[in-house]
């Protein structure tokens, strides 16, 4: 009970801070919007295959995650509130709060990205539930990886664009299965049984990554 309360406190603090400045949310939305508009301009009237559409959608999502979610621990470092958190709350609760916050942020961004993609690129969605579940499950895995990596880069002295470099090689298994699942959601014809393997891979990937992240987080968080 205490554990849930602590995680909730971190989550609530982050949401409240986000509502005050709306920095991460605005940046993520603007990034998604502008990159999708660029894709729409660059591809022109040419109709795209479902495979290209789902690949582009996920590349935009992954890039926006690598830009927007990297701030969650860097911001604590910049505000000088790391010590306060370390003193008051055990590491795993801080991590859980941040993880859920990043997950919520990603779900919001993914929904907006899918909607804008639908309008701009005339994407036909055959199986809405399948697309929604692949977006949702993909967000869990993506949040798990980025949250620990953002804690890692917060400790680095020269951060720069470090997060994408660390993130992309790790994401490939997730990206491949998620692109495949959403491709079938766009093209339709295949039932849930066909993409079951991909969805299970996403669930397994998220489970392993989040477990490893919880185990490793204390080594990053405390000196």
């Amino acid at each position: 009970m205490n554990w849930i309360y602590g995680s909730w406190a971190v989550l609530e603090k982050d949401i409240r801070l986000e509502m005050r400045s709306r920095y991460a949310l605005n940046m993520l939305f603007m990034f998604v919007l502008s990159s999708l508009l660029l894709i729409a301009f660059a591809s022109g009237q040419e109709p795209m295959s479902p495979r290209m559409q789902s690949a582009l959608l996920w590349i935009v999502i992954v890039f926006s995650a690598s830009i927007g979610l990297g701030r969650s621990f860097v911001a604590e470092e910049e505000r000088g509130t790391v010590l306060l958190l370390q003193l008051n709350i055990p590491g795993s609760q801080v991590f859980a709060g941040k993880l859920i916050f990043n997950f919520l942020l990603l779900v919001a961004v993914n929904l907006v990205a899918a909607f804008v993609f639908r309008v701009l690129l005339n994407m036909t969605i055959q199986d809405v539930m399948l697309l929604a579940s692949s977006l949702l499950l993909g967000s869990i895995g993506l949040a798990g990886v980025t949250t620990l990596l953002s804690a890692i880069i917060a400790r680095a002295t020269n951060r720069g664009p470090l997060l994408p470099v660390l993130l992309f090689p790790m994401l490939v298994p997730l990206l491949l299965s998620v692109v495949r699942a959403s491709r079938h959601a766009l093209s339709g014809g295949l039932g849930w049984a066909e993409v079951q393997g991909d969805l299970l891979t996403i669930v397994g990937f998220s489970g392993v990554v989040i477990t490893a992240a919880f185990l490793l987080f204390d080594y990053v968080w405390t000196d």
Binding site: V145, L148, L149, I152, R155, A156, L166, P169, M170, L171, V172, P173, L174, T201, G204, F205, V208, V209, A212, A213, L216, Y219, V220
Partner: peptide, 15 residues
Amino acid sequence: IAAVYNLFAATTTPF
């Protein structure tokens, strides 16, 4: 921190 990244990345390669 490098050890954490090395181990964390090693969990994804089996997939």
